[in-house]
């Protein structure tokens, strides 16, 4: 069955809304077929990924709508993947909801840079530029103030003792590498993350 673009948009909207039916119980024949149609290349892009939870490394297939908000519409196990062969546990099967939240409800993910000033009692939304510039200034100020070139014994250490970091096994290899290089270039030695605990 070939869907019109308009029909698809309506479907996307339907998928994004928790309606009285919501695909529940009522396996309306056209609607049922439409969910399948949405996975086709005319309507969505298919990409592969590896699960973000435990380190089994299960493969998943992500379908992302080519129109509308261009958000993920379905995420399920990759049947070609040799480790999981399409299978997923409860967590892996929920990655759609991690990314997209519950249809019809606000996505609980952080979507703005938030700032809490010293002694402040609430969060304020800020721009990326504002926040990164201010953090950069903090880094420089405190690195310069706490940098130690020689320790108490007079040995060269070239390190920054006033800053510390934890994280993260949730990042990609490339991000992990870049992050540790950044921290070490600043002189940090208190660099830790999930693997320690």
């Amino acid at each position: 069955m070939k869907l019109s673009r308009r029909g698809f948009l309506k479907l996307s909207a339907a998928a994004a809304l928790s309606t009285a039916f919501g695909g529940i119980g009522f396996a309306l024949k056209p609607a049922a077929l439409d969910r399948i149609a949405m996975l086709k290349p005319d309507w969505s892009k298919q990409t592969t990924t590896a699960c973000c939870y435990c380190a089994v490394g299960c493969g998943l297939i992500v379908n992302t709508a080519l129109s509308g908000a261009k958000r993920a519409i379905n995420i399920e196990g990759d049947p070609d993947h040799p480790i999981n062969e399409g299978a997923l546990c409860a967590k892996g099967a929920s990655i759609y909801q991690l990314a997209e939240g519950t249809p019809g409800q606000p996505n609980p993910r952080l979507q703005k840079v938030m700032y809490r000033k010293p002694y402040g009692t609430k969060w304020e939304a800020k721009s990326w530029d504002w926040a990164l510039e201010r953090i950069a200034k903090n880094i420089k100020r405190d690195r310069d103030a706490t940098f130690v070139t020689k320790n108490a014994k007079g040995q060269t250490v070239n390190r920054c003792d006033g800053l510390a970091s934890v994280g993260s096994a949730a990042m990609d290899n490339e991000e992990c590498w870049a992050y540790q290089a950044f921290l070490r270039s600043l002189g940090l030695v208190y660099i830790e993350h999930q693997a320690r605990i």
Binding site: I24, F26, A32, I36, E76, G77, A87
Partner: peptide
């Protein structure tokens, strides 16, 4: 409204496994 499993009839007709079966390790 009364509801129950529909065998993922849409998936089955498209040659896919029901979602529950595919997810089973």
């Amino acid at each position: 409204v009364i509801s129950k499993c529909d065998m993922c009839n849409d998936r089955v007709k498209a040659g896919k496994l029901p979602a529950c079966v595919q997810s089973c390790p």
